[in-house]
């Protein structure tokens, strides 16, 4: 091959590689007017104008990255929202803004959906929920599907109001019995509960499931428990007892442990909790470690009580903004306090 041909092919190869590189890089230029020197326009005599060649210094600015957020449409929309401005001034939001878990949580779609839910806000502001969130057992339980199934059962919530049930939940025997499949089987039998109420145990004894259960020492102990006797007359208890989720849960030592917790029982009887438990997002959120971390924080409860937050939570722009990386970064930074001032000043 002649030398000139080799050179030509070399040039072509370099050109192809350069073009491929350009397209692989997405064809994006870092645009600068300086990079595109005017090469002239055919037939046109460019005017001679003095311009110093020395003017090359860079402009040194501080913290321009925050402008990406300040120029953002969602942020601007929020800044024109009185609730947002009020919220930004609120100490609880300011405190939470420093909490990495909250910021992580705020990005979650489940949270932003749930934040619109009135029951959630009711629950979040209750001290019971806040205290419970500090309990590791509750945290563990929150991840349990059966618990969420149970929690949405109206019977469970109804029953939780009963002092006898609370008492019984503390009894290890009850829990032992409850996890026995025979007990659940028996509970399905209306006669069993009727009998239990009438104390006609002779009839009951004919039932093979009862026979099975009767052998169980825990059941024997339980049967002597006045709380159980009292509860046996309760229709909701009957419903619950035949609920497989309850039986399943009863096997869970965490549930057993929590059953002894007064706050848990408080929560269990809360209508908001029962209502919320039906909500898929809540179930998702209960599995989120960030949620339970944040839920422990007293500021979270304060925030839930904040009327502006409740209003704002319904605003899609707020959800979008909370997902904005620059905003969440900013919230953690010292600049956030100045942003709060801006919220109070710029749009009065």
């Amino acid at each position: 091959m002649e030398k000139s041909k080799k050179v030509f092919l070399g040039v072509v190869a370099v050109a192809i590689i350069a073009a491929a590189g350009y397209y692989m890089a997405g064809g994006t230029f870092n645009f600068s007017a300086e990079d595109a020197e005017g090469s002239g326009i055919g037939g046109v005599k460019k005017a001679k104008k003095y311009k110093s060649e020395n003017a090359t210094a860079e402009v040194d600015l501080e913290g321009t990255e925050v402008q990406q957020l300040l120029q953002n449409d969602q942020f601007q929309r929020m800044m024109s929202d009185k609730n947002f401005r009020e919220l930004m001034k609120s100490p609880e939001f300011t405190e939470l803004a420093k909490n990495a878990q909250f910021l992580e949580l705020a990005k979650s779609p489940a949270f932003t959906d749930l934040a619109k839910n009135a029951q959630f806000l009711d629950l979040a502001k209750s001290s019971t929920f806040t205290d419970l969130a500090k309990n590791p057992a509750f945290v563990e339980l929150g991840k349990n599907a059966q618990f969420m199934d149970l929690a949405k059962s109206p019977s469970f919530a109804e029953l939780a109001k009963s002092p006898s049930f609370s008492e019984l939940m503390k009894s290890p025997q009850f829990m032992d019995v409850a996890k026995n499949p025979a007990f659940a089987e028996l509970a399905k039998n209306p006669a069993m509960m009727d009998l239990a109420r009438s104390s006609q145990f002779a009839e009951l004894a004919k039932n093979p499931a009862f026979a099975e259960l009767a052998k169980n020492s825990s059941f024997q102990e339980l049967a002597k428990n006045p709380a159980f006797v009292a509860l046996a007359k309760n229709a909701q208890f009957a419903d619950l007892a035949k609920n497989p989720a309850f039986a399943e849960l009863a096997k869970n030592p965490v549930f057993v442990e929590l059953g002894k917790n007064a706050q848990f029982m408080e929560l269990a009887k809360s209508p908001a909790f029962a209502e919320l438990a039906k909500n898929a997002q809540f179930a998702d959120l209960m599995k989120s470690p960030q949620f339970l971390e944040v839920a422990k924080s007293p500021q979270f409860a304060d925030l839930a009580r904040n009327a502006q937050f409740a209003d704002l939570a319904k605003n899609p722009a707020f959800s979008d903004l909370m997902k904005n990386q620059t905003f969440t970064e900013l919230m953690k930074s010292s600049q956030f306090s100045q942003l709060e001032k801006m919220a109070s000043a710029s749009f009065e």
Partner: peptide, 12 residues
């Protein structure tokens, strides 16, 4: 200055 958004330019 009165606006947080102008802070970047103040030293300049």
């Amino acid at each position: 200055s009165y606006d947080f958004g102008h802070k970047y330019v103040l030293p300049h």
